[in-house]
Amino acid sequence: MPSPAPRPGLLVLMVPLMLAATPPSLPSRAKQDAPDTFSGVERVVAVGDVHGDVDALKAVLKLAGLIDARGRWSGGKTHLVQTGDIPDRGDQTREAYELLMRLEKEALAAGGRVHALLGNHEVMNMLGDLRYATPGELASFADLASGPTEGGLAGHRTAYGPQGRYGRWLRTHAAAVRINDTLFVHGGIAPEVPAKTLAELNQWVRQDLTEGQPPGGAKSAEGPLWFRGYALGDEGTQAALDTVLARFGARRMVMGHTTEREGKIRTRWGGKAVFIDTGLSTGYGHHLAALELRSGRLTALYPEGRVELPVSPP
């Protein structure tokens, strides 16, 4: 979860300039990816950063009633949103990918959905930045190397490449989705992003993952995978958030990326901003938590019980 330092105080000042910008178009491949807007969803569950701990991921999905004792989808028509940062800092990244890839299919067959969003660590791995990859994590990719003696590093490079098992899968995924009246994103959507729609925003992020494209939003400090302004900014940042919510037709934004050191889900501004990276993985304290959105209510799900979160009237 490394990040360039946020500059929340500049947000409101930059809005007029950046709203006029439009992102360059991408190849038709990006336009054929999964939809980014969903409505009429009765129940949504959101889970934050996993960081290579598949056991913690399974535990929180069981807590939310989304998988059964065998690890199979039991959530029916629920939409699960995992807000990115599946890899790094733990050895079970590959197992976590495989679990979510399987659950995508099982949920869809049951009328539900699994949305595994891009986080900054997914992008770092796709672009070869392995500062936070553990030796055990790299070793787990060894069988994907093209030669028998190339080992985990070569296997990792193959796995995350454009045609690799995980790289191909990740490159079709969104950086942000809207479900009902809620935006879900890894870091946060700043007013500066050169996009007026989610489709444009997701295309802007994919530019950095597509050969031959100009620089995009996956590596930008103000991009949706890195931005921490709403988590760390002062109270004046609410004006910037209101601008973004209005632009994308949403009531609130749910974010991971910035770890809540107390291990609890946090809200700001009457539930307009919700922060769900509670330190799920063992390396961050194993604080199991999921956010449930249902019938206009926000509920934090913990092993010790359910806690209703404050929501201002619309």
Rank of each mutant, 00 (worst) to 15 (best):
residue 99 L to D: 10
residue 5 A to D: 13
residue 91 D to G: 05
residue 85 D to H: 03
residue 38 F to C: 07
residue 289 A to P: 04
residue 13 L to S: 08
residue 115 H to A: 13
residue 102 R to T: 09
residue 151 G to T: 05
residue 305 G to W: 04
residue 71 G to D: 03
residue 61 L to T: 07
residue 180 N to D: 15
residue 299 T to M: 06
residue 44 V to N: 08
residue 50 V to Q: 03
residue 8 P to G: 12
residue 191 P to M: 13
residue 55 D to S: 06
residue 210 T to N: 07
residue 129 D to K: 10
residue 45 V to N: 00
residue 11 L to D: 11
residue 280 L to H: 00
residue 122 E to D: 11
residue 245 L to N: 08
residue 77 K to M: 08
residue 30 A to Q: 11
residue 105 K to P: 08
residue 176 A to L: 05
residue 108 L to P: 00
residue 295 S to C: 14
residue 251 R to T: 15
residue 296 G to N: 07
residue 64 A to R: 05
residue 118 L to W: 10
residue 57 L to W: 01
residue 215 P to V: 02
residue 176 A to F: 05
residue 14 M to V: 09
residue 291 L to E: 00
residue 225 L to P: 07
residue 195 A to V: 01
residue 145 A to R: 05
residue 23 P to E: 04
residue 89 R to N: 01
residue 260 E to L: 02
residue 17 L to Q: 11
residue 298 L to S: 09
residue 260 E to T: 01
residue 144 L to R: 05
residue 172 T to E: 15
residue 201 L to V: 00
residue 188 G to S: 05
residue 199 A to Q: 11
residue 38 F to V: 04
residue 125 N to T: 13
residue 161 G to W: 01
residue 110 A to F: 11
residue 262 E to G: 07
residue 271 G to I: 13
residue 261 R to L: 00
residue 65 G to W: 03
residue 191 P to K: 10
residue 283 G to R: 02
residue 99 L to C: 11
residue 308 E to S: 12
residue 15 V to F: 14
residue 232 L to Y: 02
residue 150 E to Q: 14
residue 143 D to Q: 15
residue 180 N to Q: 12
residue 83 T to I: 08
residue 229 G to K: 02
residue 8 P to D: 08
residue 139 A to I: 03
residue 3 S to R: 13
residue 12 V to I: 15
residue 36 D to M: 03
residue 73 W to Q: 11
residue 127 L to T: 15
residue 284 Y to S: 08
residue 306 R to A: 12
residue 28 S to Y: 09
residue 33 D to C: 09
residue 103 L to R: 03
residue 164 G to D: 01
residue 73 W to G: 09
residue 211 E to M: 12
residue 302 Y to W: 02
residue 67 I to N: 04
residue 118 L to F: 11
residue 137 E to N: 03
residue 40 G to V: 04
residue 156 H to V: 04
residue 45 V to I: 09
residue 187 G to E: 03
residue 26 L to C: 13
residue 270 G to N: 07
residue 62 K to R: 14
residue 192 E to W: 13
residue 4 P to Y: 07
residue 307 V to A: 15
residue 107 A to H: 01
residue 226 W to E: 10
residue 120 N to P: 14
residue 34 A to T: 08
residue 32 Q to V: 06
residue 115 H to E: 14
residue 200 E to Q: 07
residue 259 T to I: 12
residue 263 G to T: 00
residue 124 M to F: 11
residue 269 W to V: 10
residue 123 V to H: 03
residue 50 V to P: 04
residue 113 R to C: 12
residue 140 S to V: 12
residue 239 A to D: 12
residue 252 R to F: 09
residue 11 L to C: 09
residue 19 L to Q: 08
residue 65 G to D: 02
residue 162 P to Y: 05
residue 77 K to T: 13
residue 158 T to D: 07
residue 298 L to W: 06
